[in-house]
């Protein structure tokens, strides 16, 4: 019984973090029609940022995450102008490859400077007993933080002028332009926020699991599955998708071999793409 409770709770808490990373991917996808293949690389960057701040300044990941967020927005905007702006209207192949190049550059440099040795952040907060199951406090914080960041994004997108401009661009870029929206700025900002969310998710996950520079790829693939699951352009859908994913991973492993989990995840991905490409929460 404890095993089940622990699995369900872990699933929910981690699922929220997966959801956060996926929301970043979803935002970029929805607003810019770009599938960001550098998402995993930025998730890994977030992990390393959090790690080095903790190691050298002793600052907890749960505090430095706000710095990571700010740095992420700036980095993302720079990346947009370097790699994407020129091809934003070109066919998908260009943007896919442009973001993939970014990923190669980041992971290549990361491997060079950080090697691929595994690292871990041990915040050492201990655990709490919930319904008889011990849950590390870090995991709980990861869940809470992810939820807060998701809410903040929601408020930003729906309550601020800039947020509304982002949504306007995602619906119809030409119309938004005519209405006086600086679309270039909005596109770069959307990419910046998407990247920042990836880095934040990475920073949070790093407090729970060990990682290397290559780990981001795993979470990137998860984000794809979640996005497809939740539907394009729906932050709520990504959150729900993240929860489903987290639960699947943690609960399924009680019953089936761990190795089959990725197979099932990708099977789900392909099936949903085929049966309902708009996602289970998406509109027709």
């Amino acid at each position: 019984m404890e095993a089940w409770i622990s699995a369900v709770l872990s699933g929910i808490l981690l699922g929220l973090a997966y959801g956060l990373a996926a929301i970043g991917l979803n935002l970029i996808w929805g607003v810019m029609n770009v599938i960001n293949l550098s998402h995993g690389a930025f998730i890994a960057l977030g992990m390393f940022a959090s790690y080095f701040i903790f190691k050298f300044a002793g600052i907890s990941p749960f505090i430095s995450v706000f710095l990571v967020l700010a740095v992420g927005v700036v980095l993302g905007m720079i990346a947009y102008f370097l790699a994407l702006h020129r091809v934003i209207l070109a066919p998908e192949l260009s943007t896919l490859l442009a973001t993939y190049s970014l990923s190669l550059i980041i992971i290549g440099l990361g491997t060079f400077f950080f090697t691929t040795n595994p690292r871990a952040i041990d915040v050492g907060l201990g655990s709490v007993k919930v319904f008889g199951a011990y849950i590390p406090k870090e995991k709980i914080l990861v869940g809470i933080y992810s939820l807060i960041f998701t809410l903040l994004l929601y408020l930003f997108l729906y309550k601020t002028w800039t947020g509304k401009a982002i949504r306007a661009v995602s619906m119809n870029i030409t119309a938004a332009k005519f209405m006086g929206v600086n679309t270039t700025f909005i596109l770069s900002l959307a990419f910046g926020i998407g990247i920042a969310l990836a880095m934040v998710a990475g920073a949070l996950i790093a407090s729970v699991f060990p990682f290397t520079i290559l780990t981001g790829g795993v979470y990137e693939l998860k984000s794809f599955v979640i996005c497809v699951l939740g539907g394009l352009g729906s932050p709520l859908g990504a959150l729900v998708g993240g929860l489903i994913m987290g639960l699947l991973e943690n609960v399924l492993t009680l019953k089936i071999q761990v190795g089959y989990v990725p197979f099932l995840e990708f099977l789900i991905l392909v099936i949903i793409l085929l049966v309902k490409p708009t996602g289970i929460m998406g509109k027709e």
Partner: peptide, 13 residues
């Protein structure tokens, strides 16, 4: 890897 990425980016752009 980083160099390959850089070259690829140049080609794409």
């Amino acid at each position: 890897m980083a160099i390959a990425g850089f070259v690829l980016l140049l080609i794409v752009l």
